[in-house]
Amino acid sequence: MFLKVRLPILLTFFAGLIPIVAFFFKDGTPYVKTLSSSLEQDMVIVSGFALLLGVVNVVQGNVRKIERREKGWFYAIVLLAGMAFMGLFGAAGAMRLFGLPGIGMMADGRPTPFQWGSLYLFTPLQATMFALLAFYIASAAFRAFRIRNVEATILLVAAVFVMLGRIPIGEPLFGPITEWMMQVPNGAAQRGIIIGAALGAASLSLRVILGIERSYLGLDKSE
């Protein structure tokens, strides 16, 4: 019980307390500073491991898909092959295996396989996936943007002003009002959202540190 439930809650409490205490003793106390910067260095490493957790999930899911010959299993092979190409060459580069100097360029100016994949596979795929949204946003604007009531009218007018105010031919007329709109009423709305969300996030943080919120550990309140 202690190891499974109480220890994790205590660890959360202490790990959460350190950056808070460190904030209040930023320049004065070497012990707090050392403890806090050591924990920060540790978190850089733990974040690295945490980032790769998702890889295991995806591999498990796709291997299962291939084993069971589920619909789209061929694409699961493509996914795993793409991951294996980048991942294995990346890992080999990081470990300086097969004469690879890292994951960037070779000494003779040629790219390592990882760098080649970054430039000619990763970059175009990443960039194009999001570029496609330009077409869908145009279609959505055509079909859904209607002056139905006061709120929808404000929404539409603001959007059109920004679209005109941020292009060279609309700028002389709409530029100054767009800039005012962004700074004053939009700034106020965003500020309201930021303050509201920040208070919510801070209270959730407090609940986690104090062990009231435990769902992230897969525990409920009764445990």
């Binding site: 330009a134 946003i137 145009a138 604007a141 055509f142 943007f145 002056i147 059109v160 679209m163």
Partner: peptide, 20 residues
């Protein structure tokens, strides 16, 4: 950006004229 914004604004205007 200029051309595409104008196309999208034209779409919005046509869509609203049709709605009314």
């Amino acid at each position: 950006q200029t051309i595409d914004h104008l196309i999208i604004i034209a779409f919005i205007v046509i869509g609203n004229l049709a709605y009314f």
